[in-house]
Amino acid sequence: MPWYTLLVLAVAAERIAELVVARRNATWTFSHAGVEHGRGHYPVMVVLHTVLLAGCLAESVLAHRPFLPALGWPMLVLVIAAQALRWWCIITLGPYWNTRVIVVPGARLVSAGPYRFLRHPNYVAVVVEIAALPLVHSAWLTATAFTAANALLLTVRIRCENTALASAAPA
């Protein structure tokens, strides 16, 4: 179990690193006339992602969830793959990547890196991570509840982002 706690703490540290990058990128995009959209759902997203991490640890301890190698190891691989995909997105978008929806008017959509294959690859990483991280240690209630909550949030988030990108696209 201590190794699972370390894994969840490592994911938390990764999230903090994301926020540092996002803050730097927000400063850059705002200095380039960036416009923020969807401020209302952003705090909900922050709470969801924070409580997910606590839920992973709480369920595994309080419900005495075992580590099941046949489930845990593949889920760990998916968690690592999700992190790799997320950082591929961050590197590909450069200063345009953010945890918030901030769009620079007139900027072209990025079609390199993972964006060659998917319109929203970062959200694929989020979906995989939210499902897989709890299942590394058999926390199936957390995986189920947060996957459902994330699906609802992503319907709002993706609609917001698509609208923002369409309104800012060059003519």
Rank of each mutant, 00 (worst) to 15 (best):
I16W: 07
E18W: 01
E18R: 05
L19T: 09
L19Y: 13
V20A: 08
V20G: 01
V21N: 01
A22L: 12
R23H: 15
F30N: 09
F30C: 11
A33E: 13
A33F: 07
A33P: 00
A33R: 14
V35Y: 05
E36T: 10
E36A: 13
H37A: 13
G38E: 08
G40S: 15
G40V: 12
Y42W: 13
M45A: 15
M45E: 09
V46G: 02
V46Y: 02
V46L: 15
V47C: 09
L48Y: 04
L48I: 12
H49S: 11
L52T: 13
L52H: 11
L53I: 09
A54Y: 00
C56Y: 07
A58H: 04
A58F: 14
A58W: 12
E59K: 09
S60K: 01
V61L: 08
V61R: 15
L62S: 11
A63K: 05
A63W: 07
A63S: 11
H64Q: 12
P66G: 14
L68V: 15
P69I: 01
G72H: 04
P74N: 07
L78E: 04
V79M: 06
A81N: 05
R86D: 05
W87Y: 15
W88Y: 08
W88D: 05
C89I: 05
I90N: 12
I90D: 13
T92R: 04
G94S: 08
G94C: 06
W97E: 12
T99D: 08
R100M: 03
V101S: 14
I102P: 00
I102N: 01
V103K: 02
P105N: 08
P105W: 00
G106A: 06
G106L: 03
A107D: 03
L109G: 01
L109N: 06
S111K: 10
S111N: 09
A112V: 03
A112E: 13
P114K: 02
P114N: 02
P114D: 03
Y115R: 05
Y115W: 02
R116P: 02
F117K: 05
H120G: 06
P121K: 04
P121H: 02
N122A: 10
N122R: 04
N122G: 11
V124Q: 08
A125P: 00
V128K: 04
I130V: 14
A131G: 13
V136W: 04
H137W: 14
H137K: 06
A139V: 11
A139R: 03
A139G: 15
L141N: 04
